[in-house]
Design a protein around this nucleic acid. Sequence first.
DNA 1: CGTGGATATGGAATCGTTTCCATGGAAACG
DNA 2: CGTTTCCATGGAAACGATTCCATATCCACG
Lengths: 344, 344
Amino acid sequence: MVAITIKDVAALAGVSVATASRVLSGNPATSPDSRARVVAAVTELDYRPNAQARALRSTRSDSIGLLVSDVRNPFFADLAHTVEQAALAAGYVTLLGNANERKEQQDRYLDTLISRRVDGIIVAPLGDGSGSIRSLITREIPTVFVDRTVDGLDIPSVTTDSEAGIRQAVEHLAAAGHTRIGYISGPQATSTGRDRFAAFTRAIAGTGLSQDPELVYFGDYQAASGSAGVHALLQLRRPPTALLAADSLMAVGAIAILHKLGRRIGADIALIAFDDIEWFALLNPALSVISHSVEEMGRIAVDMLLQVIDGAKPESVVLPSELIVRASSSTPTSPASGPSLRTN
Amino acid sequence: MVAITIKDVAALAGVSVATASRVLSGNPATSPDSRARVVAAVTELDYRPNAQARALRSTRSDSIGLLVSDVRNPFFADLAHTVEQAALAAGYVTLLGNANERKEQQDRYLDTLISRRVDGIIVAPLGDGSGSIRSLITREIPTVFVDRTVDGLDIPSVTTDSEAGIRQAVEHLAAAGHTRIGYISGPQATSTGRDRFAAFTRAIAGTGLSQDPELVYFGDYQAASGSAGVHALLQLRRPPTALLAADSLMAVGAIAILHKLGRRIGADIALIAFDDIEWFALLNPALSVISHSVEEMGRIAVDMLLQVIDGAKPESVVLPSELIVRASSSTPTSPASGPSLRTN
DNA sequence: CGTGGATATGGAATCGTTTCCATGGAAACG
DNA sequence: CGTTTCCATGGAAACGATTCCATATCCACG
């Protein structure tokens, strides 16, 4: 690693280090002559300023951190993509971290991002306000929560209002004749897990369907727990005729095991997933989903973070969700269709 | 942003900055007494060392860069995940960049990573050896290519041998009676695009199938071009009865438009995709794929990069690929089944 | 008791920038 | 022509850590 510093540039251009620095940072107090010579020297030497040193002195790093809970979740992959593009347009690089739905990894990454003195952090938080999350507040590091929030922390956020979408889904299933709807919930350690579960409970109560607590399975937002949830729910003495999965990965797990068990989605059992993933529409039957806009969420999050960095205190934003009906839930089912198969 | 520096720690602990630094970096030349006091001061102040300053002085940043061509491509999302986990285990943080299959974004991210003085870079490169890629070499920055390579550059890489998988796929289709196989190729600006196309061409020649150049459509590894490819291929006077897509996203595009056109995959037309994505098995019919191991690729890439950082010069690794037959290609087709529909 | 080696410590230089401050010269003004 | 203003410039001080070097203390040994 051969290191070329601003000293080399200054020497080649025949100016002082200070002047070279000024030219490089666009300071107007430079003559056209020295500007030209510095620029020439820079290209000749293929000089790249050392971002560490620059950040050290100027206390800005022109970078933001994005901490998602699982990169492999298409929702967060899309989010990462839009955040990264929006940040790039504003002149920031995005350092992406992956908490893997685990609190200790979240803390580790937060520590790292804090150490690297990023100018701001966008995080889909996990757990309560303990651990490194608290440091964000005490250090007054510009932070925006995305998709999820943490109770009791006064941090601007952009989230989805699950209520409308989930109510529509439940009403849609009820209208099709379903009375027992199984719910594969997200973890209660996340705000979305709690919100969506609460919305489901309210919707069920509102439509007068079965409130049997056995119809709820608590998963962890990862594929395997979707499979486990289906397995558990179908083993009930009176199994559900419709399923609602609280995120896309658990829906994937659910679909996989339903295939294996030979249950035909949309015929034997209805299925609706939270999160609209491009290829859910390609499944046969196409999957009904509760959709919310990732692009908007990412864009707004970056926007809000820039405001926070500038010292403002933006209002939190709540985006709408809405049901998109496709074939996986469109076939009306008579409440007691077929024998109630037991699985094992 | 309240800044707590090592000076504050030293002052509170009643030792010098040098001693505090020694305790923090695990230097044995410290007394148990000062160790205890420094540690206490650190927790009391919630001190996090400034990574910039540390990196500036010690010329190590304990971070690596990973530049993928598209985060939304599940293959690269998985790769990002495994690389990130492997790097974390080795004590490195991963800065993820997204080139978006665009050369100028690749260059921009490379510049950024170079500026941040990452200890090494793993990149799925795009284009030829021009632009910022060249700087990696001249600056002797530890670099490993993953998935793709760049001709003429002497950089260790871990790639997939497409030959075997593609040959198996073509032979499998030929055995099922297909004589005209359409190929939706990746861009020729990438090594995988070229390699897979060459492998396809050789396999076709080897099995004596139609070498009609019209049967090849050149896409760009993104979903839309998969749709465009299917559209173009089906409009031929003698359309193919089987399709091979060179990556998963183009396969998604292909599936989407085949659905829209009412062509039944696995019955009206066979389809095989390169890259095994978890949910491809969930499609109905399940998608036949050419599979290669992302986990291994990511793990090996990190491993190799650590070796390069340590000054070694590891051999490049080529991983195998293999055909996994599922329903999308299993139905034998008679060469001239049905009327040759035109689409528009 | 004096010398030597080991050990813990603090002072200060250093990394590559940015930025404050002082300076010199040119231009502008009366 | 003298004074003021302005502007480009260079020297040097930061930024927050690591690390070299010198020093002080202590123990052991002859």
